[in-house]
Design a protein around this nucleic acid. Structure first.
Lengths: 190, 190
DNA sequence: CATCTCCTGTACCGATCGATACAGAATCGA
DNA sequence: TCGATTCTGTATCGATCGGTACAGGAGATG
């Protein structure tokens, strides 16, 4: 028998894919095994806590990715416009132009939210705060920056829902473009 | 043994509640039985096609409710502003100010979409078309009305996601207010 | 080569899944 | 009042669920 996988982190992408597509309840260990290429033995070796631990690990992994690829760049952007652009590029890539659902958003909608309420809420709070921080640093008034940041994050989530339901990636990209324009307008007025 | 329920329609609210909260895969027949007060016998009598038929019936029921409470009033509104207001009131009520998920939106995000892709897409197409129709009738340019209607429906879906994730009904209502303002602005400019 | 730790496949557990079969009570039309 | 129909509870089906136990091979360490 082989040690065929280097680390438990290698299982996370497949895990995330299954959870995203089938939800927590629908992600059976058979599906997970197929998607990750791991048998029950390896799975429970890496995640002794079972499905719940797998789900928590995936949530943490997604949050870490956004932290590095979106939130931190937003907060540390020298040029506000460049920060916004890089966020939109990362978002479009991550969500596959609206063909891949937002795992965290989707879990927040149902009963799956309950065991993970705090990490889910923290993800969105962090996103909104990072965007608001960028706007405030660029001179936008605090309260306007807060509602605008909420609108943009909310708008992205809505675009994921709508683009997937209508199976229309161009709708997603067009919505991102309009949200970008709203952010630019606020910057220009500041 | 009793005939305790008048019609199969009486089972739909409970059915919808379970599907909304637990998703298609997570809605077990035990949960469904508890929520509807019906045993397996009655359930399969009313829905010979099993879970799939229950799900289809719920989707159709939700769509019918929106048709009567939202879409048709939008299309037939004498006063555009009144039509928009009534839509927002109905939406706020239906989604419990963002505490109840959108069953159709949520199903569109995952694998549950596949068997129901057409009704799901039709629901959103109809909503957008109804809103666009109201805007065009009020004098808004066709293309502007189209993107604005998309933005509003998408914005509502995003607000459901965000408000539920953050467990903040006021965020939902505030977002509805801002979307209403955007619609009013477009009307005023037309 | 020996040994020890880490990983993996397999078999298996009890529980629950969705679905079916069917007898019988409630209700309706006559 | 008396079938015929409509609904309902229960028992049961095979399949699959999430989770556990454990033997044993691969790789590192010496």
């Amino acid at each position: 028998m082989a040690r065929m996988i280097a680390e438990r982190a290698d299982a996370l992408p497949g895990l995330a894919e299954v959870f995203r597509e089938y939800g927590y309840a629908g992600a059976s260990l058979s599906l997970i095994g197929t998607a990750t290429g791991l048998g029950r033995g390896s799975l429970y070796h890496f995640f002794p806590g079972g499905k719940q631990e797998m789900a928590a690990a995936v949530l943490a992994d997604v949050a870490a990715w956004f932290d590095a690829a979106v939130f931190t760049p937003l907060e540390q952007a020298d040029d506000p416009r460049a920060g916004i652009d890089s966020m939109m590029v990362a978002v479009d890539r991550y969500f596959g132009s609206g063909q891949r659902a937002c795992l965290i958003g989707a879990w927040g909608l149902g009963a799956t939210r309950d065991p993970f309420a705090e990490p889910i809420a923290a993800y969105f709070r962090r996103w909104i705060a990072a965007l608001q921080s960028l706007l405030v640093q660029a001179g936008v008034a605090e309260d306007h920056a807060a509602t605008l940041a909420q609108d943009v994050v909310s708008g992205i989530q809505g675009a994921v829902v709508l683009a997937r339901a209508l199976n229309d990636p161009s709708l997603f990209r067009a919505t991102l473009g309009r949200l970008t324009a709203r952010l630019y307008t606020a910057l220009a007025a500041a």
